[in-house]
């Protein structure tokens, strides 16, 4: 299998604090990779480095074939990214958001117009094309936001807690979109606090105190930790945190 992310001793410090502590792991093309960890374990910092937004203090990483230290602009063009906090402009309409992000990613006008129609159709959003994004329910926003992140057909997409607070049905529809994207060959790198969603990933890594404490398929992790579900695996690993014991 081809590697789409490769990291070797990737490290980031902030002053005396080591947020990400020499992590080494690979992500393969077409996989749904779950990136888990407690709040403060270093997930966001690691993800920022991998998406070219933050320079590492040490170690190395290549993402979609580019070096995170020297080719971060190339990485940004090749990947998709969505987060819960900032995804779309609330005071623009659905269609305006699609056009804005499509143009930023360099899609040509005609191509973009055609893709916008397909996207609206797939989401069953054709009636909402002129609705302000701020007026959409959260779950709809997140589905739209994911589709927008995939507009330029990136080979790799980073999803930072995409389903937080989303209702149970829409949350599952969102995962079905993830499956469909992976089915078409995209690699999905996703964080979540819902442990049932960890089960939907091909492989899962769990960070503790800036290090990757475990990495395997959900099935193997449950066996390794003799746990009934991923929630239990997570609780066992988080309990080993030294930083946590500080409070």
């Amino acid at each position: 299998m081809k590697k789409i992310i490769e990291t070797q001793g990737l490290t980031r410090t902030f002053g005396a604090f080591t947020a990400v502590d020499a992590i080494s792991f690979d992500v393969y093309e077409g996989e749904i990779f779950g990136f888990l960890g407690a709040n403060g374990a270093g997930k966001t910092t690691a993800m920022k480095m991998l998406s070219g937004l933050l320079a590492p203090s040490g170690g190395s990483a290549t993402v979609v074939g580019f070096d995170v230290k020297t080719q971060s602009e190339d990485i940004k063009k090749q990947i998709g990214y969505m987060s819960q906090r900032f995804s779309l402009y609330e005071d623009l309409t659905v269609l305006e958001n699609i056009h804005l992000f499509g143009s930023i990613y360099g899609l040509k006008k005609a191509e973009l117009a055609q893709k916008a129609e397909v996207l609206l159709e797939q989401l069953e959003f054709t009636d909402q094309r002129n609705t302000l994004v701020g007026d959409l329910p959260l779950g709809w926003k997140q589905k739209l936001s994911f589709s927008v992140a995939m507009l330029h057909e990136p080979r790799l997409v980073f999803l930072d807690e995409p389903t937080g607070g989303v209702d149970p049905i829409t949350r599952r529809q969102f995962w079905e979109m993830i499956y469909a994207a992976a089915h078409k060959g995209a690699t999905v790198f996703v964080t979540t606090h819902y442990m049932d969603e960890a089960e939907y990933c091909d492989r899962v890594s769990i960070m503790v105190d800036g290090k990757i404490a475990a990495l395997d398929t959900p099935h193997n992790l449950k066996r390794q930790f003799n746990a009934p579900d991923m929630n239990d695996v997570f609780l066992q690993l988080a309990a080993t945190s030294v930083a946590r014991a500080g409070f």
């Binding site: 960890g37 709040n39 606090h193 929630n231 609780l235 988080a238 946590r244």
Partner: peptide
């Protein structure tokens, strides 16, 4: 009001 939203499973517990 939603004290555990966005909080990891251990802190929630």
């Amino acid at each position: 009001d939603e004290p555990t939203t966005g909080v990891d499973p251990v802190s929630r517990q």
